[in-house]
Amino acid sequence: MSIATTGRRGTTRLKELLAPLGVAGATVAVFAFVGMVDPNQPGHYPTCPFLAITGLYCPGCGTLRTIHALAHLDPATALGMNPLAVAMMPFLLFWWGRWVVRALQGRPRRTTLAHPAWLWAFIAIVMVYWVVRNLPFGAFLAP
Rank of each mutant, 00 (worst) to 15 (best):
residue 2 S to V: 10
residue 2 S to E: 11
residue 4 A to S: 14
residue 5 T to N: 07
residue 6 T to E: 12
residue 6 T to V: 10
residue 6 T to S: 13
residue 7 G to N: 03
residue 9 R to I: 13
residue 10 G to F: 02
residue 11 T to S: 11
residue 13 R to W: 01
residue 14 L to F: 10
residue 16 E to Y: 07
residue 17 L to A: 03
residue 17 L to Y: 03
residue 20 P to R: 03
residue 22 G to T: 06
residue 22 G to Q: 01
residue 22 G to W: 02
residue 23 V to K: 03
residue 24 A to C: 09
residue 25 G to R: 03
residue 26 A to N: 10
residue 26 A to Y: 08
residue 30 V to L: 13
residue 31 F to A: 15
residue 32 A to I: 12
residue 32 A to N: 11
residue 33 F to P: 03
residue 33 F to D: 08
residue 34 V to A: 02
residue 35 G to C: 06
residue 35 G to S: 04
residue 35 G to R: 03
residue 36 M to V: 14
residue 38 D to V: 06
residue 38 D to Y: 04
residue 39 P to H: 00
residue 39 P to S: 06
residue 41 Q to S: 12
residue 44 H to D: 11
residue 45 Y to M: 08
residue 47 T to S: 13
residue 48 C to Y: 01
residue 48 C to G: 05
residue 51 L to M: 14
residue 51 L to V: 12
residue 52 A to G: 09
residue 53 I to R: 10
residue 55 G to I: 01
residue 55 G to W: 04
residue 56 L to Q: 11
residue 57 Y to N: 15
residue 57 Y to F: 15
residue 57 Y to M: 12
residue 59 P to R: 07
residue 61 C to N: 07
residue 61 C to Y: 05
residue 61 C to H: 06
residue 61 C to E: 08
residue 62 G to R: 03
residue 64 L to A: 00
residue 64 L to Q: 11
residue 66 T to G: 00
residue 67 I to R: 02
residue 67 I to G: 05
residue 67 I to Y: 00
residue 68 H to V: 09
residue 71 A to T: 08
residue 73 L to W: 13
residue 73 L to V: 10
residue 74 D to P: 01
residue 74 D to G: 04
residue 74 D to I: 04
residue 75 P to W: 01
residue 76 A to K: 11
residue 78 A to V: 05
residue 79 L to H: 01
residue 81 M to N: 15
residue 82 N to M: 01
residue 83 P to N: 07
residue 83 P to G: 13
residue 84 L to S: 06
residue 85 A to Y: 03
residue 85 A to W: 00
residue 86 V to M: 04
residue 92 L to R: 05
residue 93 L to S: 14
residue 94 F to I: 14
residue 95 W to V: 15
residue 95 W to A: 14
residue 97 G to M: 07
residue 97 G to P: 05
residue 98 R to K: 13
residue 99 W to M: 08
residue 99 W to S: 09
residue 101 V to P: 01
residue 103 A to N: 05
residue 104 L to P: 09
residue 105 Q to S: 14
residue 105 Q to D: 15
residue 105 Q to M: 14
residue 106 G to C: 04
residue 106 G to R: 04
residue 107 R to Y: 00
residue 107 R to M: 03
residue 108 P to I: 09
residue 109 R to G: 10
residue 109 R to E: 13
residue 110 R to E: 14
residue 110 R to P: 10
residue 111 T to W: 07
residue 111 T to A: 10
residue 113 L to H: 09
residue 114 A to V: 15
residue 114 A to G: 11
residue 114 A to Y: 02
residue 115 H to K: 10
residue 117 A to N: 11
residue 117 A to G: 11
residue 117 A to M: 12
residue 117 A to P: 09
residue 119 L to F: 06
residue 121 A to H: 09
residue 122 F to K: 01
residue 122 F to H: 10
residue 127 M to V: 15
residue 128 V to Q: 00
residue 128 V to R: 00
residue 129 Y to P: 02
residue 129 Y to Q: 03
residue 133 R to P: 08
residue 133 R to M: 14
residue 133 R to Y: 05
residue 134 N to V: 05
residue 135 L to Q: 02
residue 136 P to M: 02
residue 136 P to I: 00
residue 137 F to Y: 14
residue 139 A to C: 00
residue 139 A to F: 09
residue 140 F to A: 07
residue 140 F to P: 06
residue 141 L to H: 05
residue 141 L to Y: 03
residue 142 A to S: 14
residue 143 P to V: 12
